[in-house]
């Protein structure tokens, strides 16, 4: 592996890979292990195996997904378990009551997203949080473009309905 490519194209996306692994495994420690293994694997890959790689981010995402799924299956982790270690950013200039309500809403939405079917959850995550293009999501998840669009549409529709339902329930 060329150090320049690694340093400029792979290393900067480590946070993205970590979040992706965290989204799949649901465990900070597992996600850290996945990222470390992926980075080492990419670094040790022979140049002739990487010469055809056009999109390093999508390629690394694919490796991260596969490794995360392996870990999840082997350790039978519950993917719907609450995510550990997510930074809960508190907004300034808001009252403690509002902050508590905001945290409650955030936790509620995260739970909604985690309860989505796996493909919908990953597609929505890669699009809305990692801002990947449809083509990159296609490559990272190994599914067709149509499947990406369908899963994204269903995921967002489900989240919208649940948010509206929650709003109605509160009122």
């Amino acid at each position: 592996m060329n150090w320049t490519i690694f340093h400029e194209q792979v290393f900067p996306i480590r946070h993205k890979l970590y979040r992706f692994a965290l989204r799949i495994t649901g465990s900070v420690h597992e996600a850290e292990d996945v990222v470390q293994e992926v980075l080492e694997k990419v670094w040790k890959t022979a140049p002739d195996q990487t010469e055809n790689v056009q999109n390093w981010e999508a390629w690394c995402m694919t490796l991260t997904r596969n490794r995360s799924l392996d870990k999840t299956r082997s350790q039978a982790l519950r993917r719907t378990a609450p995510l550990e270690g997510l930074n809960e950013r508190k907004s300034d200039n808001i009252s403690p009551a509002d902050a508590a309500e905001s945290q409650d809403l955030s936790a509620s939405i995260k739970k909604m997203m985690q309860e989505l079917p796996e493909k919908q959850r990953l597609v929505m995550y890669l699009r809305d949080i990692e801002e990947l293009s449809y083509e990159e999501i296609t490559e990272a998840l190994g599914i067709s473009l149509d499947q990406v669009k369908i899963n994204l549409h269903r995921a967002r529709k489900t989240i919208r309905e649940r948010m509206l339902g929650r709003e109605r329930g509160e009122k």
């Binding site: 690694f6 980075l39 997510l86 930074n87 950013r89 809403l105 939405i109 949080i129 948010m163």
Partner: peptide, 28 residues
């Protein structure tokens, strides 16, 4: 009512990989 959804996106984008030792193992 939809603002919290986009706030969650921002929060999740801020999550960073903190394990320095993992990167230290990979050097040129």
């Amino acid at each position: 009512q939809f603002a919290p959804l986009f706030q969650v996106f921002r929060e999740e984008q801020a999550v960073q990989f903190q394990q320095k030792t993992a990167i230290a193992a990979i050097k040129p």
